[in-house]
Every structure is written in C-alpha cells, then in structure tokens.
Amino acid sequence: MKKDQIGNRSLRWTIVFGAIIALAGAAWGIFGQATPATPPAVGTSGIFTPGHASLSDAARHFFDIRSVPVQPIAYTHKVHVIDNKIECSFCHVGADKGPVAGIPGVKKCMECHEFVAVEKPEIQKVADYSKKGLDIPWQRVYGWPEESHVRFNHAPHIRQKVDCATCHGDVPNMTVATRVMNHTMGFCVACHEQRKVSNDCMTCHY
C-alpha cells in the first residue's frame, strides 16, 4: 500500500515537472522568437543562442527533420546516367577540381537539349529558363547547417577514387536526387579511420 502511494506521488511530481518544463519551453519559443533585436541575416538572428537561430531549429536538428527539396524540373538521373551513359563528372564538373562538385548551369543543359528531346514538356521548361536568361533554381539536397562548421572538399575524395555512391547512394537509378545517406560525423570518421587518413579536427572544421 505504502509503496503504491510513493509511486503515485513520484508520478505526480513527474507530471508537474514535465508541465513546468513544457510551459517554459513554449514561453521561450513564443516570446524568445517574437523579439529579435536585429533583422536576421546570414542565416542567423540577433537572438543570443549558440548554435541555432531558434529553438525550433535546434529541435529539428536534434531529431534530424529536414524539409524535402522540391526541384523545379522533374529531372531524371536514370535517363542520363543509365540509359545514355553520361559520366557524373560531365555535369558535376567541379568534383575533381575543388570543394564544390557543382550543379550545371542551364547552358550546359542546352548544349544537348537544343536538339535532343525538345518536344517534351519538362525540356521546354528548361528552354524557357534559357530564353529568359535565368538559371534553373535547383534545390540543395545534401549539405550541413552553418553551425556544423564543416568545410568539405570534393577534390581529394574523388582523386583518392572514392566512389560517388559511397556518400550519395545509388543516384544513377534515381529520378531527382534524394537524400538517402546521412552525412554524420561518424560516417566521415569511420571511412577516414578505415583509409588511415587524418582525423584531426582541423581536417574538416575551420
């Protein structure tokens, strides 16, 4: 009997503490964000918090919730890579040269699509962008938040014959690229250990 009472009491305290923490969190979420001191710029705000611009940002990062990028054109990697045997590096030209692999500009698309498959509606969208002199607003699929301070460089990885699929999954069989790999620090460090390359913090974080 006594045991039950203690059990009840501790349960009640748990509920009370839980409610207090939830209320405090909600209050901070509402009032903390409602009064930014300066207009946000460079992905940050005037709120005094290390790491994340807002509480919801931190929560999203913690639970690894990301918005799914919606691409302006229903591009298919499969048709280009599998059916027509185009190398990854034909479009992602920067991969073996520098930090950024790069997304091809609309001019690169039009090199072929001025003549190939011009009647298809998606290709006509590309032609429209080209005529207007605009680039296609592709959405980013991979990448780290600014707070990660990661400075990744594609070139040394490609030169060491790391397969694109090691980090990006089976992109050749995808339509638009989707995020199938989770680029955590453990993922990078495990491979660096296996290949006996530097694991010093300064290799990636600066």
Binding site: V42, F48, E146
Partner: peptide
C-alpha cells in the same frame, strides 16, 4: 553576438571559412 552583415554585405562572406 551572432554576427550580422547588412545586405548586400552578406554576399562578401568567404565560403571557405565558417561564420
């Protein structure tokens, strides 16, 4: 403080160095 660069000065940030 979290650094703030008034637009368009945010475009001059060096991409090779983290903020």
């Amino acid at each position: 403080f979290n650094p703030v660069w008034d637009k368009p000065l945010n475009l001059q940030l060096n991409p090779d160095v983290s903020v």
